[in-house]
Each structure stands twice: as C-alpha cells, then as structure tokens.
Design a binder for these strands. Structure first.
Lengths: 235, 235
DNA sequence: TTTAAAATTCGTCAATAATCGATTAATTAT
DNA sequence: ATAATTAATCGATTATTGACGAATTTTAAA
C-alpha cells in the first residue's frame, strides 16, 4: 500500500475542488511543517509567489503548479527523515493479503498489460484486445480467500473492477479462480504468479467468466516494479 | 459516507498528478459514459475544447477548469439517474457506527467550530483558541466503542486527527470519553450530541487529555447540515 | 522592547490557458 | 457501402497564470 501516493492524490484532489484552494494549500503546507520561504527556496522561486497562491491571488493555478508544490512537500519531508509521511503510514492499515494495490491514471489495453509482465496467455486470448486495465491488485493468495469474502470491495477492487488481479504464493492454481467465480465483481484479467501448476478447473472457470487467465514467472520484485511503473514510462 | 465527494476528489487528484492528465480525463469521461460532444454541450463550450484537453494540447489546465469538468460528470450522471455513482456507492462500505465523516478543505478554529454548532463548552475553554478543526466524524455511540478499537484508524480519523468527534445517541455521557481516553490518537474536540446527562468522569477525562468537551442540542439533521456546509459558506 | 525572519501586497511582463470555429479524420449505425 | 455522429487538428484572440522584485506588514525570538 503506497501511502505516499494516496496522500498526494488526496491533497491534490482536495486543493482542486476546494472553495478556497489557496487556503487548502496553506493547510497542507502547515501539516508538513514547511514555511513559505523554505518551500519557495526549495522550488527556486520567489517567496511572494507562494504567498500569492495561498492568498488566492491566482484563482485557478495550473495543475502542473499544484503537482510541483505537492511533490515538494513530500521531498522536503523526506529530506527531514519522513516524519509526516510516517505519521500517515502508521495510520493506514494495509488490507490483509493485499501486497500492493494501485490505480493507473489511464486505461491500458489488456494486450499491452500482459506483454509488459511477460505473461503466458492460457485462456480467452481473443478477449484481450477488448479488455482494458485501469489498475492492479497484487494478492497473497493464502489470505486472499478470506479477504475476497469481505463486503468492502474497495479493498480488492480499489476504484475500478477493470483491473488485473495478480495472485502470488500459489501452489495449486485453483482457489483464486474459484474465489473470483463466487465474487459478484469480475476483474478484467487474472494473473497467476509462478504457480506450481494450474488446475483445469481454473481454466474452465476463466473461460466461463470470459476472464483471460495469465501466468507470469517474473521474480516478484521485478513484477512489482513493472506493475508500478507501467503507466509512467516515456512515450 | 459521502461517496460522491470522495470519488470526485479521487478523480481530481488523479488528473492533477497524472503524467498524462488529458488521458486521465478521458478515462474518467468514458467511465461516466459521456461523449465529448455531450460534455461540451453541457458546459456550453465547443467540443473541440474537450478534445484539446484530452489530447494534452493544454499541458497545465487550471484547477477551476478541472473542477468544472468533474462537476459536469456527476451532474450529467445524476440527470441520467445516477447509474455510475450508484455503482461506486454500492462498492464502498460505510464503517459501522460512522454516520458521516468529512475533511474540511481548510483549518477551522475550535472557537468558530463550536459556535457554529451552538455548542455549550463544558471543559478546557481556554484550549479552544489553540485548537483547529480539519474535519469531523459523526458517530453513533452505541457502535462506536467497537469501531474505535479497530486498528484501521482512518475509519474514525480520516485524514486528520485534528478533528471534532461528535457522539450521538448518548444516554449517559461517559463511554465515548473513555473510548477516546484509551485510544492512541486524540481528536481536537469531543462533542456530545443531546446527551441525557454528562458523567463527571467524562469531564475529568477531557480535562486530563486537554480535549474540550462540548454539548450541542441541535436536531441531528440541522447539525449534519451545519457540519457539512461549514467550510462552504460565503466569506 | 528590539531585531530578525517570515509573510503579504501589488505593479509588471512574458508565456500559456480558455475558447472559438473551420476543416479534416475516425467511428458508429444503418 | 453510405450517412451520421463523434472526435481531432490547428490558427487565432483574449484573459489569466507564473514569476519577479520592491516595499510594507506581521510574527516570532532574543
């Protein structure tokens, strides 16, 4: 659970939608315990610019400016040991069994997604070009069944069901697909990470549900890295 | 739990921080199943404007523009019966016992907060001017004790501990303050909504914790209304 | 109380956003 | 295949942002 990104997004959204964006910016700068002067110096701009933003002189700052300011909050905090970020990290509970969850800022085609993780397509290959992926959830499958039965769907599906569910720690690849089958919501793609074997029931269920079943044997760290950076590469 | 506001904020934050803001805007417009033409007509602007934004011609749209676009998504969906919003509403579980939770876009002084809810100050009045309120959580106290023992603090404290916890459904005003006492996180202010009585232990605990204890007898609907709109009134 | 640091105000200017509308291209429906 | 609808491209104009810096005010520390 990448708390930093979630918090950054929360801040950005709150500023953008606020009736007083400048005051919201100031609130968060104070939350990070940064003075206007320090922020300005960090960004190599004049302190009066920060004051103008916070006072609302600029009614509609551009999103690039907002992004830069928020990134500076985090970078400055990190340079100081990350005290503020850690405060939030300790507040937010990682859902049990969910190793990582992330939304992609734009839709990625199923085909592109599977290629990026060097996935082997077991079923429903023709569906791939019709599927889009708006995020992923990396699940430790020992705990997954318990978590999937929860009624708080956002723990698994975040903000979109159009995602890839990636199950790792699989010995006999049947139970994840069964869990998906009984769940009311259906992902775009199911990925088994390094299964010892894939049960034929799993393939049948995926075909029944029209959910492509994919296998990848990348090392876990490599897989995480690719998943996290997929939407942020150049081009 | 106001899912609409949470989703709006999520969308705004994602667009603002995205490496391709235009593509993110397009993703969400498609999520709401709105064509560019319909969106443009709704906002009474030229369709080519929407296309220019989504293509990234405008690298850094102003936050007022982003806000307008997101508001239009929701309004158009609502005009169509709210199909998309309802999809999200049914996905997100309301924490048990939490009637309403909200972050304020900017800090509100303790004094101003208490005055707005016609609160009677029982303890720590001198602390009020030193306290700020960055949000509120309205709690049905029958369930609150169970919820407060959860390790997922964000269910009660959202994004800031600097908030007012408002307990309603109180008969004998002791258990909320005990729950706060044993909890590792402390709010700015504790409010009892229409208690039958306030136990002297509650007042003692509030003094010990330096948390102002407030009583309000506003009708619940009025109270909710004030709390929700406090940061959005003119001036 | 004084001093230093932090914050505010505001005139100014170059760059970019917000918007229009004409034209072209792509997609969808029949 | 054709027609209608939707989307994209791009030149042009006006309004606003992003930034500077000087002067003033406010706040915090000694």
């Amino acid at each position: 659970m990448n708390v930093k990104n979630i918090l950054a997004e929360k801040i950005a959204g709150e500023i953008t939608l606020s009736p007083k964006p400048g005051a919201t910016l100031k609130k968060w700068r104070n939350t990070f315990e940064i003075s206007q002067t320090e922020l300005a110096n960090y960004l190599k701009i004049s302190p009066s610019v920060i004051s103008d933003y916070e006072s609302g002189r600029r009614a509609s700052p551009g999103i690039k400016t907002i992004k830069r300011l928020i990134e500076a909050f985090f970078e400055i905090d990190e340079k100081r040991g990350g005290k503020i970020i850690n405060r939030y990290t300790s507040m937010i509970e990682s859902p049990k069994g969910v190793i990582e969850i992330m939304e992609y800022p734009y839709s990625i085609s199923g085909r592109e997604f599977v290629e990026s993780i060097h996935g082997e397509i077991l079923t429903c290959e023709d569906m791939l070009d019709r599927k889009t992926v708006k995020g992923f959830t990396l699940i430790d499958s020992i705990s997954a069944i318990k978590t999937l039965s929860s009624t708080d769907y956002t723990r698994i599906y975040g903000w979109s069901t159009e995602r890839a569910l990636i199950f790792t720690g699989i010995t006999y690849g049947r139970s994840p697909m069964i869990a998906v089958r009984v769940h009311p919501m259906k992902p775009s793609i199911v990925v088994y990470h390094k299964p010892s074997a894939v049960d034929s029931l799993a393939t049948k269920l995926s075909e029944y549900e029209n959910i492509p079943l994919i296998v990848t044997n990348l090392p876990l760290d490599d897989l995480k890295n690719i998943l996290e950076n997929l939407a942020y590469k150049e081009g």
